[in-house]
Structure formats: structure tokens, C-alpha cells
Nucleic acid binder design. Structure first.
Length: 565
RNA sequence: GCGCCUGUAGCUCAGCCCGGAUAGAGCAACGGACUUCUAAUCCGUGGGUCGCAGGUUCGAAUCCUGCCAGGCGCGCCA
């Protein structure tokens, strides 16, 4: 596809007064494809040449005529529209998808570069709720996207396994702890204790004090609270891993704040040596007020450290280990200040790679709080999605009979719906969690994509037509639907690039919905079964290409494409 | 109070980075389409002062300023 664009740029540059450098950024895709594949708006030229844009467009159209693969150049008002020869376009796009298959959309852009992504990162004292799900899904998708662009990607789950809340939790367990409950359902049980102790602490400030003392002892290495802490941690991780595997999410490294509890001293000493650390009201701070970033608190007045201190230690280790070209934190936007402070402090410490760190933030999921006990647990959501999917599948008994593994298929359907609903809106937006909306199975949803994919799979199974090695692409041009699909297919690689640049899997969602819609619209017109072989084969090739790109895109989102549903 | 983010159809959103050709989808409503490869689909109808007010520009949903509304953050939580 890029070759057509370059062909136009090259040809335009031959016109006196134009150059490749001038023209390349001006060339755009028209809003309406009926104008052509590319368009040159002449406003900028009009200003420079002090002529009317409409005249310029007309003049250029006359001078250029058709050339190479460009079938026509027409002026429409101030626009110069280029139409690529439909046959050349179709052959090029479908040929490329045919050759690359699962690698269509891939690139070598990132070869030799490493990206470290930190995502999911639940806090052990708190439940794995929808907020963590958003980080998990986003991070996992970004991992796929960067991998497909050739980067070496290391995924890290940085557990919130250290901090005052463990003092609080240990206290709760000492008060009300039940070993059987803890073993049977660690995450939910710890959450219940956490909620209960927080309520108690609100009425009794002494509890807060005792918790702080507990944690202080832990930082000093006291055996008893540490043993308890270790049990909480181990049991929780086991349960997380179960949930991750259900979602198809994988981490290269499980780490956590506790790993750095001894290394923070080194950080504090370095800060002190560099004259960055100040004492204020008994606490150690770095003054970031000159940059409008408030002050960063690195050690409390009782000497215990904070999240920020441990993050400083962790980034240092990560750079030493990976020499990353980028370090990405997928964490909610409520922690924006934290990361801005972290990055600025790294810069002040003289880390030359400080500007390689990125906070990929995302909006809040409203209506949920760990303190008030309104959390929706991930397992419940996945189960509910599965239940609804199964119901829907059973509504069509004939199709249901064809599905080999209804249980697994329903689970995948439910997760597709959830993953897609989360990724389909842009990161920054807050959203109100709404079961009906998340688990909707109609319209712009993950199931719409799955349905499109499964429909083509059905055609490939049932039409009785096989893909031959040579195709007469000309036979496809009788239907207008073909070019709409081909044009859309051609845009996939650039969509993947854009999604990576902006850390926005949502771009891929929008793209795939558009592709699936074009497919559904063309379904009748591109009928395969019973058509003369050359036509049937050409159509099947087109449909196969759509299926391939749908699958490639869905995988980037973390969805498993289904052959039957 | 200060800082950041968001505000587009009844609802959920895309379009904003990089200003241009009639502002697009889905849901909901209403009316159609299954003797054929998945109707979890398709076709049609109605529905918008792009939060408000200025400014820049030949041209603003898009850029700038101010205001309003909502969310988040602002030294001993993570």
C-alpha cells in the first residue's frame, strides 16, 4: 500500500514548485473513499503560490492525467483526488496478506530494542477487581502490539506486596483470623478482613497506630509478622495465576515491592549524596515544587519507606537488567502525580534513561471502591459472561450442535466481550461499570468480531471451495463491496503502528469493527457456494484475507478467534 | 484554592494529535429481510446549538484564552 503512496509523491515531485518533502505530509486519505484512495488538499499550496486552490487542483489534474498504477487523477473543488487502479490495488493487498498471513501487520521496526511493560500489579491486601483488570487487559494487549512490531518485550507483574496495609492486615488476622477460610479463598477472605479492619480503624485511631508499628517491625525483619505476610502473599499469587491463565495473560517476571525493601537504603543514600534529600517535619523529602510537582515523600518520620522509594530502586534494577528502550507503566490516572514525581526524581538523580519511562494511564472505573465493599470480583464477571454466552449459543440449537467444546467456547465468548468492551474506548475515559453494557452481545462488541470471523470460517468449511495458488483478481471487481474491503484491509499495518505510538489498543478495536461491518455488509454479494470455480475461488481468497486480518487484530487485543460459535 | 483529565444524537462512544469536501457508529425506538456458506447478521426511518463565550483562520468538533459541569490528584496509602 505504501508503494502507491510513494508513487504519487514521486510523480508529484516532478512538477515544478513541488517536492517530495513538501507533498508527502500533505497527502491524505479522503473521508469518503468514493473520492479515491489518496487526496491532495491544495490550500497550503494556494497560500504559497497565491492562487486559488480550485485552480491549482484543476491545473495539476490536467498535468498529471493517469500514470503507473494510478488510474485517475481528478480535481474536486480544492482537492486533487487519486484513484489507484482497482486491479493493481486488489492484487497488491490480497497478495501481501496471502504471503504474510499471521504476520500481516507485523514489522521489524523494533528489532534489537527492548520494552519493559509493568502492568496488572495488584495489591495483595486488596482484591483483584475491575481496575486491575483494565491494567491487565491493556498491558497484555500492548505487549502483543509491541511484540508484533519486532520489539523484545518483558512483562512484569509488580505486586503491591509491601506497605502499611500489611501491618493493618496482620492486625486483622491476629484479631479474627481463620486459617481454613484463608486457605480456601485467600483473595476474597483477605479482602473481607481488609474491609473490616478499615471500618474498625475509622472508629478507633489506635488501630491505625498499631498497624504502623506492625509494619515498622516488618521492615526491621521481625519474624512473626513476616511469616504471616509471606503466607498471604503466596496464597494470593496462586489465585492470581489461575485468573491470569484463564484470561490467557502471561508474565515473564513476578516481582514486587518487597523485593526492594533492602535496596531502598541505597536510593536514600544516593539522594542524600546528591543533595536532593531534605528533612521536613521529620520526614525525608525531595523538593519538586520548582517543577510544580509538590514534594515527593521518600521516608516517613518513623523511618519506613514508601511506594515511590521502592519504585526508584526498582527502575534502577530494571535498567541494569534490561537496558530498556522504554519502560511502560500501565497504571490508572489517579497515580499520575506519583509517576511524574518518579520520572522527575530519576532525572534529577542523573539517570540518562529517565525520559524513556512512560506512564500509560487510564481512567477510573466508577462505582467501585476497595474500602466500601462494592468491588466486583473478576471471576464473577468472567463467569457471568460465560453464562450469558452459553445461553445465547443454546438459542440456536443447530449451530450449537456443531460446536465441539461449548464450555470453552462460551468462556472465550464471555472474555471476548469483556476484553473488547474494556479496550474499545480510549484509555483516558472514565467509565461506569455496567454489566449490561460490558456483557452486551450485539452491536459494536467483541462478539460481533467473533461472529464475523466464525462466519468466514463456516464458508471455508462448507462452501466446498478450496483456495488455489493462483487467483483471477479481476473477477472480484464486479462488486463494489470488494474495493471497500480491500481498502480497509490495506490500512491494518498503519493502524497497528498508531496503536503502538499512542499506546491505544482502542484504535485496533475501531478498525476491526469497521472491517467486520464491511464483511457483514458484503456477505450476500460475495456468495461463494455454487458459483463458478474461478469466481468462487477469488471471493474465497478475499474472505479468507478478511478472516486473517480479523484474527491478527483480535490476537493483538488478547482475544482468541473462534472457528465456530 | 492549585494542577491534570473529560464534556459530540435519549444512552455508550469514534472523529481532535496533524484545522478543510455532507459531523460518524452502536444501543434504544419504529418498519423491513432467513428454501442457500452462522439472523450474535443485514437494509431503511427518525434523532446533533460538537458544554458555554470569545479569539486565530479563507475555513474550527479539531488550535488558543476565559468560564461552567463532572472525575482524579495535591508529605507521612499504594
Amino acid at each position: 500500500m505504501i508503494q502507491f503512496r510513494e508513487e504519487i509523491v514521486h510523480r508529484l515531485a516532478q512538477i515544478p514548485g513541488l517536492s517530495e518533502k513538501l507533498v508527502r505530509p500533505l497527502l491524505e486519505k479522503p473521508a469518503d473513499p468514493s473520492y479515491g484512495e489518496y487526496a491532495l488538499p491544495c490550500f497550503r499550496l494556494a497560500r504559497e503560490w497565491r492562487r486559488r486552490p480550485n485552480e491549482i487542483a484543476e491545473d495539476l489534474a490536467r498535468q498529471l492525467g493517469s500514470f503507473g498504477s494510478i488510474a485517475s487523477v481528478e480535481s474536486v473543488g480544492p482537492y486533487l483526488n487519486f484513484k489507484i487502479d482497482p486491479l493493481a490495488l486488489t492484487r497488491s493487498v490480497l497478495g501481501e496478506i496471502g504471503e504474510k498471513g499471521p504476520d500481516y501487520g507485523s514489522d521489524k521496526l523494533g528489532e534489537g530494542k527492548t520494552i519493559v511493560i509493568d502492568y496488572s500489579s495488584p495489591n495483595i491486601a486488596k482484591p483483584f477487581h475491575m481496575g486491575h483488570l483494565r491494567s491487565t487487559i491493556l498491558g497484555s494487549s500492548l505487549k502483543q502490539i509491541f511484540s508484533t512490531l519486532g520489539y523484545r518485550v518483558a512483562s512484569i507483574n509488580f505486586l503491591g506486596d509491601w506497605g502499611t496495609q500489611f501491618g493493618l492486615l496482620a492486625l486483622a488476622y491476629q484479631k479474627w483470623g481463620d486459617n481454613q477460610e484463608l486457605e480456601a479463598r485467600p483473595i476474597r477472605y483477605l479482602y473481607e478482613l481488609y474491609v473490616k479492619i478499615n471500618q474498625a480503624a475509622q472508629e478507633e485511631p489506635a488501630i491505625q497506630e498499631a498497624a504502623r508499628e506492625n509494619f515498622r517491625q516488618m521492615e526491621e525483619g521481625a519474624r512473626e509478622p513476616l511469616d504471616l505476610w509471606n503466607r498471604f502473599r503466596t496464597l494470593s499469587i496462586q489465585e492470581y495465576e489461575r485468573v491470569y491463565s484463564r484470561l490467557g495473560v502471561h508474565f515473564d517476571v513476578y516481582s514486587g515491592e518487597s523485593f526492594y525493601r533492602e535496596k531502598v537504603q541505597g536510593v536514600l543514600e544516593e539522594l542524600k549524596a546528591k543533595g536532593l534529600l531534605q528533612l521536613s517535619q521529620g520526614a525525608s523529602i525531595v523538593d519538586l515544587l520548582p517543577w510544580g510537582l509538590n514534594v515527593a515523600l521518600l521516608a516517613k518520620s518513623d523511618g519506613t519507606t514508601l511506594y515511590l522509594t521502592r519504585d526508584l530502586a526498582a527502575t534502577h534494577e530494571r535498567y541494569a537488567e534490561y537496558r530498556f528502550h522504554r519502560l511502560i507503566y500501565v497504571v490508572g490516572s489517579d497515580q499520575r502525580l506519583h509517576f511524574t514525581q518518579l520520572f522527575k526524581t530519576l532525572e534529577l538523580m542523573g539517570r540518562p534513561w529517565a525520559d524513556r519511562c512512560v506512564h500509560v494511564d487510564f481512567g477510573r472505573i466508577l462505582g467501585m471502591s476497595t474500602r466500601k465493599g462494592q468491588a466486583v470480583f473478576l471471576d464473577d464477571v468472567l463467569d457471568e459472561g460465560k453464562r450469558r454466552a452459553l445461553e445465547k449459543m443454546q438459542a440456536n440449537p443447530e449451530k450449537f450442535a456443531e460446536v465441539a467444546d461449548p464450555d470453552l467456547t462460551a468462556d472465550i465468548c464471555g472474555m471476548s466481550a469483556i476484553v473488547f468492551s474494556d479496550l474499545s474506548r480510549r484509555r483516558v475515559k472514565d467509565y461506569e461499570f455496567d454489566w449490561e453494557q460490558v456483557l452486551a452481545f450485539e452491536g459494536d462488541t467483541g462478539l460481533y468480531l467473533q461472529n464475523a470471523h466464525a462466519r468466514v470460517a463456516g464458508i471455508m468449511r462448507k462452501s466446498g471451495v478450496a483456495l488455489p495458488s493462483s487467483i483471477d483478481y479481476g473477477l472480484l471487481l464486479g462488486e463494489g463491496e470488494t474495493l471497500d474491503l480491500v481498502r480497509h484491509l490495506s490500512a491494518f499495518p498503519e493502524v497497528v503502528h498508531r496503536a503502538a505510538e499512542e499506546y491505544e489498543p482502542a484504535f485496533i478495536c475501531t478498525y476491526l469493527i469497521g472491517l467486520a461491518r464491511l464483511l457483514h455488509q458484503a456477505y450476500k454479494a460475495l456468495w461463494v457456494q455454487g458459483r463458478p470455480p474461478p469466481l468462487a475461488e477469488a471471493r474465497l481468497k478475499l474472505l479468507w484475507s478478511v478472516k486473517q486480518v480479523l484474527a491478527n487484530g483480535m490476537r493483538l487485543l488478547g482475544m482468541t478467534p473462534l472457528e465456530r460459535m
